[in-house]
């Protein structure tokens, strides 16, 4: 009986890392976008505008990375 522990271990490790990483990234994106909404609503100062833009850029970056991961997933299915 041969059990391929290395393959099992790598499925375990990769799955955990990717799941937690992706969900974390996506959450950061959501949080970034929602901060933008509240900050914009509270005050129109330039400092708030700066962090809003930063948060929004960061959020879009996070979403872009998630989209890339999904694209890679589709590539894995097709390949």
């Amino acid at each position: 009986m041969h059990i391929d522990w290395a393959a099992l271990g790598s499925v375990f490790g990769v799955s955990l890392a990717v799941t937690v990483g992706l969900v974390g990234l996506f959450t950061l994106g959501i949080v970034g976008l929602s901060k933008q909404g509240t900050a914009g609503g509270e005050a129109g100062t330039s400092a708030a505008g700066g962090t809003t833009a930063l948060a929004r850029t960061g959020a879009y970056l996070c979403f872009a990375l998630c989209a890339a991961a999904v694209a890679y997933g589709i590539y894995l299915i097709v390949a």
Binding site: V11, F12, S15, L16, T19, V20, L22, V23, G24, F26, T27, L28, G29, I30, V31, L33, S34, K35, G37, T38
Partner: peptide, 30 residues
């Protein structure tokens, strides 16, 4: 088991990161 542990950790993380946000505002994104 793997899926369960992964989803559990991910759920913890996402609630931790998003703890200061309004659930109604973020629900759409999720």
């Amino acid at each position: 088991l793997v899926a369960g542990v992964g989803a559990m950790l991910a759920t913890r993380l996402t609630y931790r990161i998003g703890r200061n946000t309004d659930p109604a505002a973020t629900a759409k994104g999720y």
